[in-house]
Amino acid sequence: MSRIRVENLHVNYPLYGRSRAAAGLTETDADLGRMLRGPDGRVIGVRALQGISFTAEAGDRLALLGENGSGKTTLLQVLAGIYAPDDGVVEIDGRTTALVNINLGMNAEATGHRNITLRGLASGRTRDEIEDKRAEIAAFSELGDFLDLPVETYSAGMRMRLSFAIATAFEPDVLILDEWLSAGDAAFRKKATERMRRFVDKAGILVLASHSPSLLSDTCKRALWLDQGRVRAEGPVGDILKEYNAEMERRQVSRDERAQTEIAAAQAARAAMQAEAEERAARKGRGLKPGYADGGTGGTGAEPDLDNPLARLIRRIISFLSGR
């Protein structure tokens, strides 16, 4: 019997030097709580998931909703066993197949057929079981002779068809999909949706993350709305979609307004800086171009890149060499 139980799941996504001290200047209040900071104030990680709990029983079709960066993909990756939780429990009964990234999990230089073998073996199947499914996978993917060519020659849609065909052919108990079907054409999407439904009828569990309302409402019964790494709401997919869309519209409006004011503020600050630089240049009696004005004090926030001792030294040397 397949089952998913997630309890108080926390995941912090570490950045390891990928962030810079300047990051955070544009954070909104909501984002602030998600940044993990080191003792020196640098952003060292992101609280990707903060206390997620839910369960899914056999036959469940669960939709994952949320904005970009809300934690959907991270949650799927934790369910797939790729990322380990920092806290909390993830329990999955049943063989799990996750298709989280279209470009991964294939050996691009190997042929389509070879990849069927590789992924079958990776799924813990024997060579006999793989051979039994090969014809079915070839038929469902509709790739024909392309299966004898390296996967690197495939289009995104073709890769997706192959991945989906392999993943579902081996009949997992739990299927985890992220934004997958968007790469297929309408005909394939229909075929895939049908296959997913049949799969769930066999008492599997489907977890599907997508931005497409029609795909979600066609495929899923229940929905989980993720917001800032937390569960915002859970319920029948139709209700949650309605609530979600209304909220997204509200947010977009307020975001547009904020963006306008921010742009205006940034432009004003820059104009003030230029005016100041021009004034200084005029005082020195030289016709310096405002853009190259050397304040000597380093960045004032608008150009954080140049605000370090090395950059300052280099600028000094350049100005020395140019005879100023």
Binding site: A80, D86, V89, I92, T96, R119, S123
Partner: peptide, 30 residues
């Protein structure tokens, strides 16, 4: 893709045992 083990439980702790079972599980997938 597919998880080789039918049941999986992920929670912090038991890191040492995890290493050895990782070595053993990998060895089985010759």
């Amino acid at each position: 893709m597919t998880q080789a083990l039918p049941t999986r439980r992920a929670a912090p702790g038991r890191e040492l045992a995890g290493f050895f079972s990782d070595l053993a599980a990998g060895l089985r997938m010759t």
